[in-house]
Design a protein around this nucleic acid. Structure first.
Lengths: 173, 173
DNA sequence: CCTGCTTATCTTGACATCAAGATAAATGGA
DNA sequence: TCCATTTATCTTGATGTCAAGATAAGCAGG
């Protein structure tokens, strides 16, 4: 019995004519995402990072050399607004973790490039973060963990959460 | 192939010594929660409600008569801070959807009670919201949906997301 | 009764976020 | 070449959120 199951039962008693089963899945999705995020945040706090900071650094690091994306590509990968993107880049620029460069051929484009310090911070946090995630999933049985992963992957496909195709530095027009 | 699978492959290429499999599950959890929330928000917008407003109204409605919770109980059920609780109650009070009442016996406690208008707004939105959730889950096969639900329920239990035990009006000391 | 501790709510200040619009650059058709 | 349209980023203003502390009311032991 978890919290969502309790809410489902309350709704069945109060409004029995409505099929409440979707809530058992989607209600948990957002609630558990929040609970898991709290655990993840606490690890990043120990590492001196905000979760959103790691998000940016990780997006750039996993691209591989030369560790650069345009502001727009970052925006799409992180699923945030353009205003938030500008703000995030600015804060990380102040911290010395990224640099901004105007594209030479297309004056509208801003390249965000990881500095050595930014890459180092990301690579230091990365294994600690993943170990934390591993510890959370270890609370589940192998079967449950596998069902969860399979179900989530299916949902990702169903919602068309497709891989981003960033502009590569070579692709400058 | 979804976005998270792509990120996993990028990480495998860039930092092969780290086991990246936990990200396939937990990365999807937060990413998909965000995608699903966007769909949910758009339905509430049509209904003239914010998601957080429905959260409050639903917490009160599903309690059954007399549709009341203390501010602290709302805070715990919705997993938000006390400051956010105060703010939410204030906004809904302005809209005429809830009322504030000091407990007669314990002067620190504030009872938040649903008005008829608040209950009506919630009961109008509730079936539309659940139909929307049902439509999202319908994108999955029966098997995938069942695995997702089972996996999430297991995670809820593992993270000890336990049912709240609110103070009932009868329990006034 | 006091006095210190706990509990419940509210206030304040900071901040990340978004929507909408501004700015500026590129593009494409007449 | 010119102008309208599209694209990429940034700015502005509003908002929801939290952490930390303030306020105020119970509570418990002397």
């Amino acid at each position: 019995m978890d919290a969502v199951e309790h809410f489902v039962e309350q709704w069945r008693a109060e409004a029995p004519e409505i099929d409440v089963t979707p809530m058992a899945t989607i209600g948990r999705l957002s609630r558990l995402a929040q609970l898991v995020q709290a655990r993840i945040d606490s690890v990043f706090e120990e590492l001196g990072l905000q979760s959103w900071e790691f998000d940016v650094l990780a997006s750039l690091t996993r691209q591989g050399a030369p560790y650069a994306l345009t502001a727009g590509d970052l925006e799409r990968q992180m699923m945030i607004s353009s205003g938030t993107t500008t703000h995030r880049i600015g804060r990380l620029e102040q911290r010395g973790y990224v640099t901004r460069t105007r594209d030479e051929d297309d004056g509208r484009v801003v390249w965000v490039t990881l500095t050595d310090a930014g890459r180092a911070a990301c690579l230091e946090a990365y294994p600690v973060h993943l170990e934390n995630e591993r510890r959370i999933l270890e609370l589940l049985s192998d079967d449950d963990r596998e069902m969860l992963t399979t179900g989530l992957r299916a949902l990702g496909v169903a919602l068309r959460d497709e891989p981003p195709t960033p502009r590569t530095p070579a692709q400058r027009r």
